[in-house]
């Protein structure tokens, strides 16, 4: 079914779409020495000039038609989404939207969604499922908005429900972390079959400042917290939180939106091609196993579940590709 919608053209072209050929970094050792420190990465990920969701959508996709509102409360400008085409094939794209100026940031609430933003995202995921369109999400948020109205409207329930829906959504989902992957508010858009991240993106359980305030009782220890929390690119690869990193232009994504978008586009196309050939039942069980396998603990017999050097699902992701499909 999905083959009809996406990728069938590519499927006949053989297997010339290896992930590694698309400028992806799948192994921390591929990263250049002299990497920025985690704290520098945090600053880069937050750079106001960095390309945000609409900057990327406009360059990667064609004919983007934004769809508004959650059909219940209002339209949340901190989440944008709609239908677009990727090389002629329709997809649903949803992303958190930060502003590129103070004025725009006020409108966009600095990319911090309200519950209705997540409910809009869920409406679009259901639309994707109904019409067999693959989903691309763009993660870029300091976190879900922590204000009192957000609490009144069920911020936690909205995030939990969005995660639940994504774990069982019967279409391919590719997640791209553009900048900040801030906690549960990011994860609400972050459950997919493949999770990619820009080279200088971060993904964390809490902001380094928040972590420092709680554990060191001082927000000025954020730099130490950023190191300890392992939130930057190489750590995300090592833990398997990201399957691959997308190389940024030499000066960082903010120096060249065009080149950044081009790198994202060439990463997305082979992933959607590949995923579109996977039967839905396999897709869902692989997605389940992908998130099921996160965890570091020691079993009663003394055996550990150590951090795999190369998580098995990543091998699965690569091998079928090399053989020309699952």
């Amino acid at each position: 079914m999905l083959d009809r919608i996406v990728g069938s053209r590519r499927a006949t072209e053989g297997n010339g779409h290896l992930a590694v050929e698309a400028g992806l970094i799948t192994d921390a050792t591929q990263l250049a020495a002299g990497r920025p420190t985690p704290w520098q990465t945090v600053q880069t990920a937050r750079n106001i000039a960095r390309p945000h969701a609409l900057d990327i959508i406009g360059r990667v996709f064609e004919h983007f038609q934004e769809l508004h509102g959650d059909r219940a409360f209002r339209d949340d400008p901190a989440i944008v989404g709609g239908i677009a085409e990727l090389e002629g094939r329709p997809v649903i794209v949803v992303g958190q939207q930060k502003g590129s100026s103070t004025e725009e940031n006020i409108v966009r609430n600095f990319g911090m969604p309200y519950p209705e933003g997540y409910r809009k995202a869920m409406r679009l995921y259901r639309l994707a499922q109904k019409f067999h369109l693959p989903v691309v999400t763009l993660v870029d948020t300091p976190g879900a908005y922590p204000g009192p109205e957000a609490e009144e409207r069920g911020q936690a329930e909205a995030i939990a429900s969005s995660i639940q829906l994504m774990t069982r959504l019967a279409v391919p989902i590719v997640v791209v972390v553009l900048g900040e992957g801030g906690s549960g508010g990011a994860l609400a858009l972050g459950v997919g079959d493949v999770v990619l991240a820009l080279e200088n993106a971060t993904y964390s359980v809490i902001s380094p400042e928040g972590c420092a305030a709680i554990l060191w009782r001082s927000a000025s220890e954020a730099e130490r917290a950023a190191v300890a929390m392992k939130l930057a690119g190489p750590d995300l690869l090592e833990t398997g939180v990201a399957d691959a990193l997308i190389r940024e232009p030499a000066g960082g994504a903010h120096t060249d939106h065009e080149a950044t978008a081009a790198a994202i586009k060439s990463a997305l196309i082979p992933q959607l091609d590949r995923l579109s050939r996977v039967p839905v039942a396999d897709l869902l069980s692989l997605r389940y196993e992908r998130f099921r396998s996160f965890g570091m603990f020691v079993e009663p017999d003394g055996s550990t579940a150590p951090m795999p050097a190369q998580p098995w699902w990543r091998r699965i992701l690569k091998n079928p590709l090399e053989k020309g499909g699952l």
Binding site: G190, Y203, M229, K230, D235, T239, F291, F294
Partner: peptide, 10 residues
Amino acid sequence: GTIALMQLAK
């Protein structure tokens, strides 16, 4: 760290 965050999805 982020492994704890992934427990939400798991």
